[in-house]
Design a protein around this nucleic acid. Structure first.
Lengths: 177, 177
DNA sequence: TCGTAGCTAATGCAAGCGCATCGAAAGGTT
DNA sequence: AACCTTTCGATGCGCTTGCATTAGCTACGA
């Protein structure tokens, strides 16, 4: 029988292809055939890794979320270390896959499985930001506000209403309050 | 020859159908056939009102934007009247077609014609909010921040991370600063 | 009445979609 | 070598899509 395939690795490879396509063409640009081509695997391989397109999209969104969490966690305090400075750039960086996130968020509005993944991710991000803002009078509320502001600014940057620098400046001013 | 058709009225009727479908099924649910059925007109009528699907979507987004501006303008001060109170509910109401806006925003990320419509709309909204926040130290910056916060909160409500009431409370607290 | 201009709805067309299927290939075991 | 299991890639299938096309209808003016 043929060499065993590293399914985890392949699934991630395919999820990365999904994100690249969503970034370039939006959600509608994510067809199985295009994903297979982008990931340099066959259609059959995509189908063997994911039973349905929805499974594939869910996994891709989970990957996006994992990466966002990983970046946010990189800003978390180490045990015994002083509370790190929360910066505008740092907050924006957790949405570095902005277009992809926006495409998924819009789809999540009409797809409960995707919405579920997003909610779980938001809950964890909220926890991380609450800890990062532990020196505020109400860290939870501050985290809620900061997350929303960051996402709103990200959307405005994506559509070209604001520049990245403007968005960062807004966050810095907000954090300075 | 047949009775002249009120094209403006029909275009708006079709745009409304687009928005209803986008609200229920996201952007992918907006096919010409479904729009025609939703608007209770034939495929031919849709095609006669809009040369391409892109035209139709652009017009629909303009309609969404016009409605948002109309709502925001309703909050604008009348000449000689005192500056009205900006409320959280008032700010959120300009995004009452939240899912539709989110779907269009995501698509605008990869569609320059839609992005252009959105930018123009944001610019006008920004102007309105700047005037509404004229009593702040920096009204422009305050408007930028408020718009972003509102959009971020709207997204979080749509995906179910926050409730409408939570979003409103965040805005009220922000406005009270 | 006839001709014309505007409007109509249904359908054709080519392309693409997600998912299922199938014969072939590959590697391990006996 | 033969057999079995796993993996493979190409393609079939039924359906949907945007846009083009066609034959027909209607109202108005000469």
């Amino acid at each position: 029988m043929p060499k065993a395939v590293d399914h985890d690795s392949r699934r991630r490879k395919i999820a990365d292809a999904v994100c690249r396509l969503a970034d370039k063409r939006g959600f509608e640009g994510v067809s199985l055939r295009d994903v297979a081509a982008e990931a340099d695997v066959s259609m059959g391989a995509v189908q063997r890794c994911f039973h349905t397109k929805e499974d594939m999209l869910r996994f891709a969104l989970q990957e996006v979320g994992r990466r966002a969490l990983s970046r946010a966690r990189g800003a978390e305090p180490q045990v015994g270390a002083p509370l790190p400075q929360v910066t505008g750039e740092g907050v924006l960086s957790h949405r570095s896959e902005a277009k992809v996130w926006l495409a998924f968020a819009a789809q999540a509005a009409v797809s409960p499985p995707l919405a579920e993944v997003l909610r779980a991710n938001y809950a964890e991000l909220h926890g991380i930001f609450t800890r990062l803002l532990a020196d505020r009078p109400d860290p939870e509320h501050a985290a809620t506000t900061l997350l929303a502001l960051a996402d709103g600014l990200t959307t405005h940057v994506v559509v070209g209403h604001l520049s990245h620098d403007q968005a960062r400046a807004v966050l810095e001013a907000h954090l300075a309050e």
